[in-house]
């Protein structure tokens, strides 16, 4: 088997939940520093695809490669656990509902994994927490618990938590969908900042304007397949597929 030359490569991804086929032969590549958006209606398989990349939802067929290493390779259970934990350390993930650890402060949320997995000292962890929380504008709330933060603030801490592992790739699954409208921009701002730093990102989103302004490429998914993909100005302005046009039209009406 040859190593793919792409930074992220998904080959013929197939996923079924029982009889329900959710991903149907999807192939996708992402280069280092690229930002790829995934749009599509509810249930089209966006989250499943994203979660297959760090094997949170293991594929039932196909391969995922990251930086020359196959993520979902066949190994004995014990070896696989070691391998996948290693891979996941390199991939940051941000969830719709934040999933911050409620019994830990912002600082502890950020430093827990690096302390456990990277063998850094308490002081190094402290510096790391300050650095990462400063980056997302949450330094002042470093000793707050999640319950004491707004949704937007929670999500920014969650991003800092992911960044503290120094990932090569960031996955965002509708990072702003659970937020009140007035809190969306503060999270988008952080993501834009990451884009400026050339972080490789795959972003599942319902926000077309944001996707259009930040992504190098956008994929439209429907019923488990990638219907159309291209640069945002092409995909959003001149979609070639009827299904894409339909989706965008409905979305525009919904937004009004």
């Amino acid at each position: 088997m040859t190593d793919p030359s792409h930074f992220v490569e998904i080959r013929h991804a197939q996923k079924s939940f029982g009889a329900l086929e959710v991903l149907k032969d999807i192939s996708l590549t992402v280069e280092r520093g690229q930002i790829v958006g995934i749009i599509g209606s509810s249930g089209s398989g966006k989250s499943t695809l994203l979660r297959a990349i760090n094997d949170l939802d293991p594929l039932t067929g196909g391969e995922v490669w990251l930086d020359g290493v196959q993520v979902n390779q066949k190994l004995s259970h014990r070896k696989y656990e070691k391998h996948i934990n290693q891979m996941r350390q390199q991939v940051g993930m941000v969830f719709q509902h934040f999933n911050l650890f409620p019994h830990m402060t912002a600082r502890e949320n950020v430093t827990m994994a690096p302390l456990m997995l990277k063998g850094i000292s308490k002081e190094e962890a402290n510096t790391l927490a300050k650095e990462q929380l400063d980056k997302v504008g949450m330094l002042e709330r470093i000793d707050y618990y999640p319950s004491q933060l707004s949704g937007g603030q929670k999500q920014r801490v969650a991003i800092a938590r992911a960044l503290a592992m120094k990932p090569k790739l960031m996955l965002f699954d509708e990072a702003t969908s659970a937020l009140d409208p007035e809190l969306v921009e503060e999270v988008n701002l952080v993501m834009r900042k990451l884009a400026e730093e050339h972080m490789t990102m795959i972003i599942v989103t319902h926000e077309m304007d944001f996707a259009a302004s930040v992504c190098d490429r956008v994929l439209f998914m429907d019923q488990g397949v990638v219907v159309e993909e291209g640069p945002p100005d092409v995909l959003f302005r001149n979609p070639t597929q009827p299904r894409t046009r339909e989706f965008l039209r409905k979305h525009l009406e919904g937004a009004k």
Binding site: L56, R88, F95, L100, F101, P102, H103, A113, M116, L117
Partner: peptide
């Protein structure tokens, strides 16, 4: 305990045992 907690911990690279010990059981 919300299963997103285990997922978030695993996503950071913790093993299941580590995630239980640091995240799920304390909650």
């Amino acid at each position: 305990v919300d299963k997103g907690q285990m997922e978030a911990a695993r996503t950071l690279g913790l093993s299941r045992t580590e995630a239980l010990r640091k995240v799920v059981v304390p909650q």
